[in-house]
């Protein structure tokens, strides 16, 4: 396993209630999906990002969000450099 880094932009509510993209750099150990990245950011870098998740296995649909302009499941989308992730835009 090689440790490398990926930088992504995640949209979140700021204190004034505006949805703004912020940039985060995530260490990558083994294949990660977007949900893994959101978890890392939420737990380690910025607890104020928010998203929904449930089954983690692509069955329940809870983590449907906009990733690079497309509606996708965060748990079934592989993480890639420069991704733009908007958890606020789901169904």
């Amino acid at each position: 396993m090689t440790t490398k880094e990926v930088t992504v932009r995640i949209r979140k509510l700021d204190e004034k209630g505006e949805l703004i993209y912020h940039e985060y750099t995530i260490p990558v150990e083994g294949e990660m999906n977007v949900l893994n990245a959101l978890e890392y950011v939420h737990e380690v870098l910025d607890p104020t990002i928010s998203y929904r998740s449930s089954c983690r296995r692509g069955v329940c649909g809870a983590c449907l969000m906009t990733i690079d302009g497309k509606k996708r499941l965060a748990c079934e989308t592989l993480l890639a450099e420069g991704m733009e992730i908007d958890p606020s835009k789901g169904e």
Binding site: M1, E29, G30, E31, M32, N33, N36, R56, R57, L78
Partner: peptide, 9 residues
Amino acid sequence: LAPPRYRGS
């Protein structure tokens, strides 16, 4: 247990 994308499957 790994990689993260499959953890828990």
